[in-house]
């Protein structure tokens, strides 16, 4: 795999309000290899996604998207790079004032390259893919949590990005909702999309990813496959995989 087809973080440090979130963090997301970043709540998993997207900026280190360094670039340059990436936020982050259809077609409307009819066709296709086509004219407030997530996935797919990020996609969902999201992610991977997910939900992670990174105390504690992760004898990795009484109230 060439460097031009990957997202890479090198020695990234991020501090906010005097609190260190990431220290010398490295990450490689190669196209076609789906990765999950694991870690306890508040360990800085979402921060990694926001750093790659340029929504926040690191104090030091470098971030590359398809070989191009994007660290601390102006917002206008980030906008170009972001076209390669879409994200499904934890709460969906659907725009309240727009219908489901307008949410899904948002990026296409903004770009203004396609006609209204073409955008509508794409929107319907994406909503059909995630199984919520009947909700086309509803507003986000009228949807359930699971439906919101699926609409957010449809929105992420609309502009045909190379990479799709998932921020805790199964949090707050019932088992059927989790199953739906996992199968959708697998279908996306079959369709050739590269996914980067952050979660603390191990079954979802193992069902959707080939490689795993574990953050512990702002540093990368582990990187490898599922087999390597399970075989890893590091105490912090073992503690994460099989919490014991020692983990209580940590």
């Amino acid at each position: 795999m060439t460097e031009e087809q990957s997202i890479r973080m090198e020695q990234v440090c991020y501090t906010v309000g005097g609190r260190t979130i990431l220290t010398d963090f490295d990450l490689l997301l190669e196209q076609g290899v789906n990765r999950t970043i694991l870690g306890v709540s508040g360990s800085g998993k979402t921060t990694i996604l926001k750093l790659i997207l340029g929504l926040i900026h690191p104090q030091s280190g470098r971030i590359y998207i398809n070989g191009m360094e994007i660290t601390n670039r102006p917002e206008s340059e980030y906008r170009e790079q972001r076209k390669k990436i879409a994200i499904v936020f934890q709460g969906g982050a659907l725009f309240d004032s727009m219908t489901v259809g307008e949410n899904v077609g948002y990026r296409l409307f903004e770009e203004g390259r396609l006609s209204q009819a073409e955008i509508e066709e794409i929107v319907r296709e994406k909503l059909r893919f995630v199984g919520v086509e009947p909700a086309l004219d509803l507003y986000p407030a009228e949807l359930s949590g699971g439906m919101k997530k699926r609409v957010a996935i449809a929105r992420a797919l609309a502009a045909d990005p190379e990479y799709i990020f998932f921020d805790e996609p199964t949090t707050g969902l019932d088992p059927i909702g989790v199953y739906n999201i996992v199968s959708l992610m697998n279908r996306l991977q079959e369709a050739g999309k590269t996914t980067l997910m952050v979660t603390h939900d191990l079954p979802t992670a193992f069902a959707t990813s080939q490689r795993f990174s574990l953050i512990h105390e702002s540093r990368l504690a582990f990187e490898g496959t599922e087999v390597e992760l399970r075989a890893c004898l590091q105490p912090n990795v073992q503690e994460f995989l099989q919490p014991t009484d020692r983990s209580l109230f940590v």
């Binding site: 917002e75 709460g91 725009f95 990026r107």
Partner: peptide, 18 residues
């Protein structure tokens, strides 16, 4: 403010909006 705390502003930025 609500759009910021519900990540809608971040979502707009990711979608390429100024």
């Amino acid at each position: 403010g609500t759009m910021v705390v519900t990540e809608q502003v971040d979502a707009m930025r990711v979608e390429g909006t100024d």
